[in-house]
């Protein structure tokens, strides 16, 4: 349903995404595993169309259509959505109203259910604002709940585990698995190989390039042996070899 072909993004002369190829199937959880600064969030922006990022080469095909020229709203209406790594705060916007925004859920019951799925008591949170009175972890959970409520065809989750305490992590991961069982495809971005384990397939990203793709166990091991052990963080392989 999503095909990314020879994608490239150059910013201020620097290659941020370097000839990247991947395809995500319907209902599949596809992991992107990479260390800091490797281009994960940039890839999310390129697919969602946010942050004014336009590919400098390559194509992004969603359900057979090249979406590179569509606005963020148009992409969302086609069924793509994004949960941000660092979600914004919006003063005066209630949690309940934020979760109802997409209009894909009918009434308040599904919204409550989604809050429950991320471990937030609906009675305590529905009428709070998504402003800076929420803790970082609470805001992250609400971001995930908002995608659960929206039920997009493709959910891009940028580090859904960051800021989530270790005890609640299984609950959050369960929610993500639930999403895919509902039929959503998930592009699961993370730097944590434990999180990537819930994916069907995982790609390792470094310097904007996919180094390998495989089953989670295999990729995790490869990531540990190669990336975690590597002394150069986010240096293109060709250059690293010269160093």
């Amino acid at each position: 349903m999503l095909e990314v072909e020879n994608l490239q993004l150059r910013l201020n002369g620097k290659l941020i995404i370097n000839d990247l190829n991947l395809h995500v199937n319907k209902g599949e959880i596809y992991g992107i595993l990479g260390e800091n600064g490797t281009g994960k969030t940039t890839l999310a922006h390129l697919i969602m169309g946010t942050n004014n990022y336009k590919p400098t080469a390559g194509r992004i095909i969603f359900e057979g259509q090249d979406i590179a020229d569509l606005s963020v709203s148009q992409r969302a209406k086609k069924g793509i959505s994004l949960a941000w790594q660092e979600p914004v705060r919006i003063e005066g916007l209630r949690v309940g109203d934020y979760l109802k925004l997409s209009g894909n859920n009918f009434g308040i019951e599904p919204v409550k259910h989604c809050l429950g799925m991320v471990g937030l008591e609906p009675a305590q949170y529905l009428n709070r604002d998504i402003d800076n009175t929420l803790s970082g972890g609470e805001r992250k959970r609400i971001e995930l709940a908002s995608l659960l409520a929206m039920r997009p065809k493709l959910a891009i989750l940028d580090e859904p585990d960051s800021g989530i305490d270790i005890i609640s992590l299984p609950l959050i991961l369960n929610g993500i698995v639930g999403m895919s069982k509902q039929g959503s495809s998930v592009l699961l971005i993370t730097h944590n190989e434990k999180v990537a384990e819930i994916a069907h397939r995982v790609s390792v990203l470094c310097a904007g390039k996919i180094l390998m793709t495989g089953a989670p166990a295999e990729t995790s091991l490869w990531f540990k042996n190669n990336c975690r052990a590597c002394v150069h963080i986010n240096v293109p392989v060709e250059e690293a070899e010269k160093l």
Binding site: S71, S73, S81, V88, I90, L93, G103
Partner: peptide
């Protein structure tokens, strides 16, 4: 970023601005 967050939920740009303004007021 606020506008884009709401647009990513399917709102048009002016609808997104409207939600932000109504919230603030």
């Amino acid at each position: 970023r606020q506008v884009e967050t709401l647009m990513a939920r399917g709102l048009d740009e002016n609808e997104a601005v409207d939600v932000i303004v109504r919230g603030l007021l």
